[in-house]
């Protein structure tokens, strides 16, 4: 499709469909007829009925719209990007982060700060990991880039707090070890696609 169609800003010449509006009455007699028909048409009563029906729906058929927010919450999309979570390996319970530093590197607002060191097994160990949520714009790049699916976005969107620091330490974001069974994989940026298995090809080692 060419872009020409969208570049045309001339509103009048586009394919707008006009509603079949009736013409304004011309003669006095037509005006009178319009007044009479509008007077005796039950349109006003239909309006009354609609509101009454909605009242009955709300009161007796459990169709009240209101969500009493702090007490009830609407479900949010699994792709929602709220406060981050650090996930653990399901088998061992160890945190997934391998300290590669990609998230720190890619973060466009420079809000991830981390320090790593080698532990006694010469494995990378995360000694410091904080996210400055005063700067984070919840872009999701960190979750997308993480090779281990370690840093993901969670569902905690109520981020008003006395101190921003209350969310941002590694231990705060890490899945508590006793909640390991409840840990959910993240569906959003960087997640494995549902048909990932089909897309795996054998590495061509035969060359």
């Amino acid at each position: 499709m060419s872009l020409e169609k969208f570049k045309n800003r001339n509103v009048g010449t586009q394919n707008y469909k006009k509603l079949d509006l009736t013409h304004p009455p011309k003669s006095a007699w037509c005006k009178f007829k319009q007044v009479v028909s509008r007077t005796f048409k039950p349109e006003l009563c239909i309006g009354l009925w609609v509101t009454l029906r909605e009242m009955i729906n709300a009161l007796f058929r459990k169709k009240m719209h209101t969500t009493q927010y702090p007490f009830e919450k609407l479900p949010i999309s699994p792709r929602y990007r709220a406060i981050h979570e650090m996930l653990r390996l399901l088998e061992s319970g160890h945190y997934r982060c391998i300290g590669c530093g990609l998230c720190e590197k890619i973060c466009i607002s420079n809000c991830i700060a981390m320090e790593t060191r080698y532990d006694e097994n010469q494995r990378k160990e995360v000694s410091e990991y904080t996210i400055n949520f005063g700067r984070c714009i919840f872009c999701g790049y960190c979750a997308e880039v993480c090779p281990e699916l370690a840093i993901v976005h969670g569902g905690r969107y109520e981020t008003a707090s006395e101190q921003r620091a209350s969310f941002s330490l590694f231990e705060d974001m890490l899945t508590p070890i006793d909640k390991l069974k409840l840990q959910q994989e993240y569906q959003g940026f960087g997640a494995v696609s549902p048909n990932a298995d089909d897309n795996i090809k054998k590495t061509p080692l035969a060359y």
């Binding site: 509101t51 009454l52 009242m55 709300a58 169709k63 009493q68």
Partner: peptide, 13 residues
């Protein structure tokens, strides 16, 4: 209250 119910809200609560 009545206006709220007619708009399927809860009103003062």
């Amino acid at each position: 209250k009545i206006l709220a119910f007619m708009q399927r809200r809860l009103g003062p609560q």
